[in-house]
């Protein structure tokens, strides 16, 4: 069974920091009190997926670095407003390209699955408000 309260080891964070430090435009990475910061759940997920893939599959981190440089250049060459880019949006574009060139996930495959996910209503099975507690354990242990 999964342990409910597992915490990452201390060295994981410093390892992640050294990966982030070598990325292009790393001064543009959103930060709070010097630490990498995220505003949306998908940002943290895209970030974690990339570093987990690097760790698990052992591809050189430079490969991702290069894709990210290219993804940012694509933006710069096509957009007139250069200040308007989002770091993690470009991050995801780079990850897609990396996954395509490594043969992990093709673009049509990703498009198709994305459409399927968008077609599902959000929390399809959990829409009703539940206004009473689901469990009450009374005082003195009597349920």
């Amino acid at each position: 069974m999964q342990s409910i309260n597992e915490r990452p080891s201390d060295d994981t964070k410093s390892k992640l920091k050294s990966l982030v430090d070598v990325l292009p435009f790393s001064e543009r990475i959103p930060r709070r009190s010097d630490d990498v910061a995220f505003d949306k759940a998908w940002e943290i997920r895209a970030f974690s997926m990339t570093v987990a893939l690097h760790e698990k599959l052992g591809f050189p981190w430079e490969d991702f670095q290069q894709e990210l440089i290219a993804a940012i250049h694509v933006w710069e060459s096509r957009q007139s407003d250069l200040s308007e880019w989002s770091y993690y949006e470009r991050w995801m574009a780079a990850l897609e390209e990396l996954a395509r060139t490594k043969g992990w996930v093709s673009t049509p495959e990703l498009d198709k699955r994305t459409d399927e996910i968008l077609a599902q209503p959000r929390n399809a099975h959990h829409q009703q408000p539940l206004r009473e507690p689901v469990t009450v354990v009374s005082a003195e242990g009597k349920a």
């Binding site: 998908w42 997920r45 895209a46 997926m49 893939l53 995801m92 990850l95 897609e96 996954a99 992990w104 996930v105 495959e109 990703l110 699955r113 994305t114 399927e116 996910i117």
Partner: peptide, 9 residues
């Protein structure tokens, strides 16, 4: 899209 990528991987 991020969710789809994760699911496929």
């Amino acid at each position: 899209r991020v969710k789809a990528m994760e699911a496929i991987l």
